[in-house]
């Protein structure tokens, strides 16, 4: 008898617990899914002026598509953004990888506070930090006037380094020490140990570090705007420009391209993860 009632109770409650997610789901649909659908819609519509002077929105139209692909400067900006984002990611990895390795090595660093210190700049306002970097670089005579590209790159690396350090540090902590020691004991030189044991083990950290820097670098426009004094235009700058011009259709199309790039990079990274797994399986 008691078993039965508790069963009924549980079923009834199970129903309720599940529905705690209802407001969350509704919020996601309203403010994540629908906005994306709306930019898809806007990307393929155009505003048309009727003979009587009223403006109507027409769907489907390919004006934004044509505007984008017939405009060399826009395509150029896309490639420059990808290039700068790649460079920033690479530089951040080159600086951040050894750093994370040393931070995670108990022989070098016993102090966990240091890791927090490396992430702490994120708590100082981002725009203020960018401004500080600009003012310092101006003092050092690296400014938008004489070296816009270098200044932008320095600002980017400065800002996104914490995003690289954190995931790399987490994977470095999980490195299989006995495997590394075994490799050394079995006669591998330090270079071989690095390429055959440490590097393959840290691939997941590298992948997540890349995704955490690449996309924000492409879409952030404050850093390039401030540090290059408006001389370097990234994809984010262009979307912002469409926003200020209230060119919703063209802007939506560019946001859509951005989304597509995000999707592609997600697909690529999930493939890397799978390859890693199958490679591991192949070993055995």
């Amino acid at each position: 008898m008691s078993k039965k009632t508790s069963g009924v109770n549980r079923n009834f409650f199970h129903f309720q617990r599940k529905y705690l997610a209802f407001p969350y789901a509704v919020f996601l649909i309203l403010f994540v899914i629908i906005p994306i659908l709306i930019i898809v819609f806007y990307a393929f519509t155009a505003e048309e002026i009727r003979p009587d002077g009223s403006i109507v929105t027409v769907f489907p139209r390919v004006e934004s598509f044509v505007n984008f692909f017939s405009n060399w400067s826009k395509i150029n900006v896309l490639f420059v953004s990808i290039f700068i984002a790649l460079q920033t990611t690479l530089l951040c990895l080159l600086i951040g990888y050894p750093l994370a390795y040393f931070l995670a090595d108990k022989k070098v660093n016993k102090n966990a506070v240091l890791v927090t210190l490396f992430v702490a700049p994120m708590w100082i306002n981002f725009v203020l930090r960018t401004g500080a970097t600009r003012d310092l670089l101006t003092w050092m005579n690296i400014n938008g006037g004489n070296a816009p590209y270098l200044a932008t790159l320095i600002g980017m690396v400065q800002n996104y380094l914490p995003f690289v350090i954190l995931p790399l540090y987490t994977t470095m902590l999980k490195l299989d020490k006995s495997q590394i020691e075994a490799a050394a004991d079995l006669g591998a030189n330090p270079v071989q140990v690095f390429f055959k044991s440490i590097l393959p083990q840290s691939v997941p950290g590298i992948v997540s570090a890349c995704t955490m820097t690449f996309m924000p670098t492409m879409s952030s426009y404050v850093i390039s705007d401030t540090l290059s004094e408006g001389k370097i235009t990234l994809f984010g700058n262009y979307i912002n420009l469409e926003f200020s011009n209230k060119a919703w259709n063209d802007g939506s199309f560019m946001a859509l391209i951005m989304l597509a790039i995000i999707g592609i990079s997600m697909l690529l990274t999930s493939n890397t993860g799978e390859k890693e797994e199958s490679r591991g399986a192949g070993l055995w």
Binding site: V32, P35, I39, G251, L259, I262
Partner: peptide
């Protein structure tokens, strides 16, 4: 989570 901030901002604004 993976969406770029500017896409979130722009899509909300358009909506």
């Amino acid at each position: 989570i993976v969406n770029a901030e500017i896409v979130i901002a722009f899509s909300l604004t358009v909506m």
